[in-house]
């Protein structure tokens, strides 16, 4: 058990559950929910890679001074990357949903299978 990183285990599990949902559900909204869950899983994996046990958040205050910051703080780079990835995730989810609304408006049903034959 000690050689398993528990947070990346959770992240990988969420990623797999999300992909399973995106691939197996016929309903478009459920597919997008699957993608959103997989997104959360990937973000957790990236943050967990930068986590070092027993260290503090990369923010200076009275308890953590600048001189030994590199010895007491976690890796800030994955956090900076995930910060922007979450915002983009919302924008991409909204874009997927507006495609779904648009498909619905064009007269199809909620099931993705009914779009196989359609000529756009």
């Amino acid at each position: 058990m000690s050689d398993v990183n528990i947070v990346t285990l959770i992240g990988v599990a969420l990623l797999l559950v999300g992909f399973y949902g995106a691939l197996s559900r016929p309903n478009v909204i459920k597919m997008i929910v699957g993608f959103a869950i997989a997104d959360t899983g990937v973000n957790m994996i990236i943050v967990a890679v930068g986590y070092l046990p027993g260290r503090t958040a990369p923010i200076l205050d009275s308890a953590a001074d600048a001189a030994n910051a590199a010895r007491t703080m976690v890796d800030p780079i994955p956090q900076a990357l995930v910060l922007t990835a979450i915002v983009i995730g919302l924008a991409v989810t909204a874009l997927m949903l507006s495609f779904a609304v648009r498909m619905r408006r064009s007269g199809g049903g909620m099931a993705i299978d009914s779009y196989g034959e359609q000529k756009w």
Partner: peptide
């Protein structure tokens, strides 16, 4: 990814 690589230092 799941195996703990056991980093002690940031890059």
């Amino acid at each position: 990814f799941v195996r703990d690589v056991g980093l002690a230092e940031p890059g």
